[in-house]
Amino acid sequence: MKLLAALLSGVLFGVGLAVSQMTNPAKVQAFLDVAGAWDPSLAFVMAAALVVSSISVVLARRRSQSLLGEPLQIPAAATIDLRLIAGATLFGVGWGLGGLCPGPALAALSTGVPEVWVFTASMLAGMLSYRWIFRVAPIRE
């Protein structure tokens, strides 16, 4: 039941990304291209997701545990540090170059487009290199 909940949540996430065409790198890059033929679609995806997600946070905060009886693991980190900004900035550069971020990359693997597999393999290598360089520093998210 618990695994099924995680799987269904992932499936719904993948459906949402595909329906909103965030699985298309050209669409993402068109959002970032504010000086060109700007496509604001991504902002609508994020705004709509935020509305539902915010409601779920309000509901979750009224509870002491999840509906399936597990602890609510809501991050409490509050410090804006160099690590956060440097990491997010590097991520943004890669996001702009490829037009893919982690969720859409995994979702678009299903299309079999070779470029997506190349990007994803490289992304996993980047994640592993972080763990190797920092000797698995604690993750705070």
Binding site: P102, L124, I139
Partner: peptide
């Protein structure tokens, strides 16, 4: 694409 993947992978782990 390879560079983009590395940046996304490394950056998201560094920036949580």
């Amino acid at each position: 694409l390879v560079a983009a993947g590395l940046l996304v992978g490394f950056g998201t782990q560094l920036g949580d």
